[in-house]
Design a protein around this nucleic acid. Structure first.
Lengths: 338, 338
DNA sequence: CTGTTAGCGCCTTCAA
DNA sequence: TTGAAGGCGCTAACAG
């Protein structure tokens, strides 16, 4: 595998390697003539900077690593896409790693990334233990959390950019209320997820304030998949549904509800209204058209990268700090007036 | 951000930095005593190898990059997961990048990766132009293609590991024949995809040999999503379906067919049988239970990594060469006897 | 078993 | 405008 270096080019051009380095880094202190010659040579010989060497020397790399709990949830897949697009635009590249905060070997992953001197880490998690983990590492590498926001957990506050789950829950409750619903269920509440807890809390509070009756349907598993939603909904349908609307903790859960509803010949939204959260792409499909809350992934991801980059330039400012993005209501076809 | 180096440890331990390096790399030539002392110090001061320096010095990194056309297709998401698990087990890490062979700036991505001296690249693609692209870069970095296999395209042969699409197509045809079907449709044939072309060709050939009538329903778009499947199926249902079975080019397409069928009150498998290809996780869900061909992602990914690693150790052997993994039939609930 | 000496490829003063 | 020299952190002979 050929490996033409800065030195080779220097020799070829009859200059020193520092001159080549300068040219490559766009220093103004290079005569137009030599610059041209060097550039030509680089092109001709297919020179390619060795980023390892460059990063080593510069003390920082252009790789941002993101850790996420699995690409199987389309939400993450969609977010990573946006993340990469924006990061590239800002001159960085994304290294995707699987990992959950609860994994016993999660610290190995952090060590590995730190060992590679990544510019920063974006941790996707809504685990309660995430802040603690971050605090343990944030003095060794810039980290920003994506997916938790809990003012109440002040002592555990860390740098974070996230959907405003409280606002989301409120919007949902108000929307359903406006449609005339008075008895609703929050389906899929998962204790281990801070996001879900917040959504649920805010939804419930608002709903009750408005005078609605709300029932809670917890999700005892550790993930929120279509499957889980399907089983929860089945239970609820078997018990006999008293409510006129369901607010699912996320779109995947909502899709499961839809599947179960079909099986029970329950029509949405005629028999019951359904709302999700996340706006995953499936939710927009013609045969689905799920009404949901859009976290504005693009903004969210750009905000996250931006936040990291800002702090990269001013490490001393790298302390706790939360950036919230407001979700917006996306009315489609699964909610009806009662 | 603290940065304790090998030298610091050396000083602290009162030895030279090479001794530290040796201990860290598990050389046998270190006395138990000093080894212990050094290790303790490393632990105490939170020493972390600088992988950049290590890779630079050693001339090779432990990062394998994989390029894929989007995480939105669950197939890729699932594959990447397996890929990462196995790679990690073999001491490598995966860097995920988005990119399609047809992208105008795809060579920039290759240059970037080469610049980072990644150990190798795994390119996920079934584009006809993939082999050419690979040939252009394979003398600069080890690349293995994941997703194409076309013996006919001999001149374009490159290192590849892939599902045996021909076998898959044949299995499908034989299975449907065995169930009594005599008129079938291949739905979602996408010209730009070599995989799909092969599946289709083999399916059609086998079916006709067995005396079945097969109709082709091409997919003129550039991707294979639920959405596309939905629209194709809708068309076919509107035209009036003469056939008793549908073989979809992949599971996503098949899911779209299921959605359309529901809308048309066509029952699967009572009114029509349906088969997919890929075995994405959704396909296994209780409300879906799609009969499909399982590419055996685990084997496939392990084979891919293995292939790359073998060649890494013996670069001179890095020429064309194809490794095929046989898909296996997964009978679930969407195919019936006629 | 251990220390010394050279790099790996690049960037960055400091002089010239 | 350019070159020489030193260093980023680590590995890898080569002597002892």
């Amino acid at each position: 595998m050929s490996t033409v270096t800065i030195k080779d080019i220097a020799r070829l051009a009859g200059v020193s390697h520092s001159t080549v380095s300068r040219t490559l880094n766009g220093s103004p202190n290079v005569s137009e003539e030599t610059r041209r010659k060097i550039l030509a040579l680089c092109h001709q010989y297919g020179y390619q900077v060795n980023q390892l060497a460059r990063s080593l020397s510069a003390g920082r790399s252009d790789i941002i690593s993101c850790i996420l709990p699995g690409l199987d949830n389309p939400l993450f897949a969609e977010m990573v896409l946006k993340l990469e697009q924006y990061a590239r635009q800002r001159g960085y590249h994304i290294m995707v790693c699987h990992g959950r905060v609860e994994d016993p070997d999660i610290s190995q992953l952090f060590d590995f990334l730190i060992g590679h001197r990544v510019a920063g880490i974006i941790l996707f998690s809504s685990s309660r233990q995430a802040p603690e983990l971050i605090q343990r590492y944030m003095n060794r590498v810039p980290i920003v959390l994506q997916g938790i926001y809990d003012v109440a957990a002040a002592p555990a506050a860390v740098p974070a950019v996230t959907t405003d789950n409280l606002v989301g829950g409120r919007i949902a409750a108000e929307y359903l209320y406006g449609l005339g619903h008075r008895r609703v269920v929050y389906l899929g509440m998962r204790q281990s997820s801070v996001s879900h807890s917040l959504r649920c809390e805010s939804f419930t509070d608002t709903a009750r304030q408005l005078g609605m009756a709300v029932r809670l349907m917890p999700n005892e598993t550790l993930s929120s998949t279509i499957d889980v939603g399907y089983h929860l909904a089945k239970q609820i349908f078997l018990d006999g549904l008293q409510e006129t609307a369901i607010f699912a903790s996320c779109d995947s859960i909502a899709l499961g509800v839809m599947a179960a509803a079909k099986e029970f010949h329950i029509s949405i939204p005629r028999d019951v209204s359904l709302m999700g959260f996340d706006n995953i792409s499936y939710a927009a499909y013609p045969q689905i058209r799920l009404t949901t809350l859009d976290p504005c992934k693009k903004e969210l991801m750009e905000g996250t990268v931006e936040y990291l980059l800002e702090r990269l330039d001013a490490p001393e400012r790298f302390g706790p700090g939360i950036r919230l993005i407001r979700p917006v209501l996306l009315e489609r076809s699964t909610c009806g007036r009662v």
